[in-house]
Design a protein around this nucleic acid. Structure first.
Lengths: 217, 217
DNA sequence: GTCTATATAATGATAGAC
DNA sequence: GTCTATCATTATATAGAC
């Protein structure tokens, strides 16, 4: 909490956060330096290298997201966490950076996926306890599956929108939700199979009977 | 079908296909030229520019994939199409390029997503006719939702694997399938909600009653 | 068609004055 | 801490000989 935190170093990090989110991680140091109103050399002086700058951005976002009180995920999926981060307050550019980071990959991406998986698991288990969500054979695998699938879906939509032009996250989330809610509710309510033949066959193959157990030949 | 097709031009395109897939689209012309055993200038001579080279790769893959007889998608999802392309025969590097292209975005990506969405729709409708798949309120939206979600999920796994090291597609597909089959079958068989409250509420809000219709004030 | 040699532009990073 | 000036590298693309 040094007072220098409000100075050039923080200004550079903020500018980088925005530039990385808007133009991708291939953007040059000169553009960031120009946005921050400093010289390119000062960036290197403060962060060591471009990777150091990105690492500082990652750490900052990771810290804020981790310590943020997020509502339960609910049936909308983990993209609600991002939408919540993006919505309204001054964390909007953090959300933009988080989404860009998820789309581009890198160290922060895995952390965010894990974080959302955990939140999804908690939400699902709460639903199970309440009786609104069906129990699962493997709750952890289900939470990871649902989280990664809906996140991957969102990132596909994000990339698609980005290729058309600058992305407004609020618009993106709204349009994506509109496309997804119907089919998702349908799927989550009744599945797509008319009977449980596939699942029963899979369970029969993966959960060995008492007779099969201990027979390794 | 000119005989020159077997010469340097084709060799460059093949080398580019492999390099783009393995190292991403940021790879330099020098690396591709070296692989093809030609000078960088010859690449520009034949393809005009680096983008021209990529466009030629896109077109080649697009053409092969479009004219390929692919089995129906089935419950495994659209990644089966890619796994089928990758498996066995000499199209393996085309599949690698297709996956890399899907992961990185660009013009080919949208074409492939559309293609797989159509295949998924056909497969689902066949299942509906057979009685194994439940009918949908909006079959087109459902096919797109399922295709994009499972593709997005696969691409997340692909990127994750790539960041660890070189990717063998067959291994990737196998591991991803192993992680996904259980939760997917569970979801596709019975959903995750214990009752249809959410869906009924959504349907009530989006399908206006006879009384509501025509009332736009 | 294919090459060597080069032009031109942009990058990340450094040196050293202030 | 912050700057100017510059270096070294790499990139795509071009010019022109053969």
């Amino acid at each position: 909490m040094r007072s220098t935190d409000l100075s050039a170093r923080a200004r550079i990090r903020e500018a980088a956060l925005v530039r990385f989110a808007e133009d991708g991680f291939d953007v040059g140091l000169r553009a960031i330096a120009s946005d921050a109103g400093v010289s390119p050399a000062l960036i290197v002086h403060h962060f060591g290298s471009k990777d150091g700058l990105r690492a500082a951005c990652d750490e900052h976002v990771s810290e804020v997201v981790t310590h943020l009180k997020l509502d339960s995920v609910g049936p909308g999926g983990p993209e609600q966490m991002l939408a919540q981060l993006a919505g309204g307050d001054e964390h909007a550019h953090l959300a933009a950076y988080a989404v860009a980071s998820l789309a581009a990959g890198g160290p922060l991406a895995r952390r965010l996926v894990d974080l959302m998986t955990r939140a999804t698991l908690e939400s699902l288990e709460a639903g199970v306890a309440q009786g609104t969500i069906r129990p699962s054979r493997d709750p952890g695998a289900r939470a990871r599956y649902l989280t990664e699938a809906s996140l991957g879906h969102l990132l596909l939509a994000y990339r698609h929108a980005r290729e058309a032009g600058p992305v407004d996250l609020a618009t993106l989330f709204a349009q994506h939700a509109a496309n997804v809610v119907g089919p998702a509710l349908e799927l989550f309510t009744a599945g797509i199979f008319t009977d449980d033949g596939y699942l029963r066959a899979y369970e029969a193959a993966t959960t060995p009977t008492a007779h099969d157990q201990g027979d390794e030949s």
